[in-house]
Amino acid sequence: MTEAAEATRRPPGTPCWVSLMVHSLGSTEDFYTDLFGWEYEPGPEALGPYVRALLDGKEVAGIGEMPPDRHLPVAWTTYFATDDADTTAEVIRSCGGTVAVGPLDAGVAGRLAICSDPLGAIFGIWQAETHMGTRLHGAPGTPVWNELVTQDTSTVGKFYEHVFGHEAQTHPDASADFDYLTLLLQGRPAAAVHGVGRSLPHDRGPHWMTYFEVEDADTAADQVIRLGGSIVQPPHEGQRGRLATVADPEGAVFTIVRSAN
């Protein structure tokens, strides 16, 4: 690996990439182009048809197409950086998680595995080689936050601490009605765990939620509807500003949050 590549490798445990597997790649590309202004370039096709979404020529996310005979849930997947996918996969297993796919090579881009935590939330691990992950931050159309929505934070918070070295910090406003942990890396917020108890959607179970920045959450939510998507939770004020939870035409759920700029 070159010195430049080594310098941009993310610290282990950092959310470094988000990726979506769909049934119709072309129509999904069109939806996110109209919503976020994404352009695309071919990604590593070692695992099938796949594109990298670009803003200003910089990679922000990935979209792949499932084989026609696969009928898996369509959902955004958060990937965490690792320096050694095989070792991290073993730690995941030893801590009560599951490794469903891999670890395996994605061409020369890197090495990955698809895993789930002890309560079933799916996530990925990514060992970067030529592909370092998301390269543009803090602009509309980019992923800006990753939050685990699960039953409660106690058990699963310890899992992520052990696997990725996160420090789980209870939110200052936490109470019997608000179960929330911030996962810190080197003292900085990296992600969060939100325990929602019985409010967890029955059709989805525990899941990682990707937040994408937009200039205006209300306008973007209206645009999602016009483009054939749907509203899961209308625009409202949340922990990270004004936001809405929406779904694309294939049902992949994500959150849009108003830009702070």
Rank of each mutant, 00 (worst) to 15 (best):
H194C: 11
F36S: 02
E213V: 01
A252D: 09
T77M: 11
L47A: 15
D218L: 00
A139C: 00
T170V: 14
D179C: 05
T150C: 14
G57C: 04
F80M: 08
S27E: 14
Q127A: 12
A61N: 09
C95L: 02
W126I: 05
S259H: 05
Y32M: 02
D56Y: 14
L112M: 15
M66S: 10
E45L: 07
V163A: 08
R111K: 15
Q233S: 12
I225Q: 07
I63D: 04
R52Y: 15
E39K: 06
F212Y: 15
D30P: 00
L72E: 13
A109S: 13
L136Q: 03
D56C: 05
T77L: 10
L47C: 01
F159P: 01
V51N: 14
T219D: 11
S94T: 00
E237N: 01
G228M: 05
E161Q: 13
A221I: 04
Q151P: 01
R135M: 04
L148M: 06
E41P: 03
M209D: 10
I125T: 03
A260W: 11
S19P: 00
E45I: 10
A109N: 09
Y180H: 07
G102Q: 03
C115Q: 10
Q239P: 01
D117Y: 06
F212Q: 11
T142V: 02
I114S: 12
A7G: 03
P140M: 09
S116W: 12
S154K: 13
H131R: 03
H162I: 05
H194F: 12
E147H: 03
T150N: 06
M21H: 10
Q239Y: 01
D34K: 15
D203E: 10
G120H: 05
W17P: 02
T8E: 04
L148R: 02
G138K: 07
F36M: 09
L136K: 11
A75K: 13
E3T: 15
V91A: 06
T219P: 00
E167M: 11
A247S: 15
S24G: 09
D173Q: 15
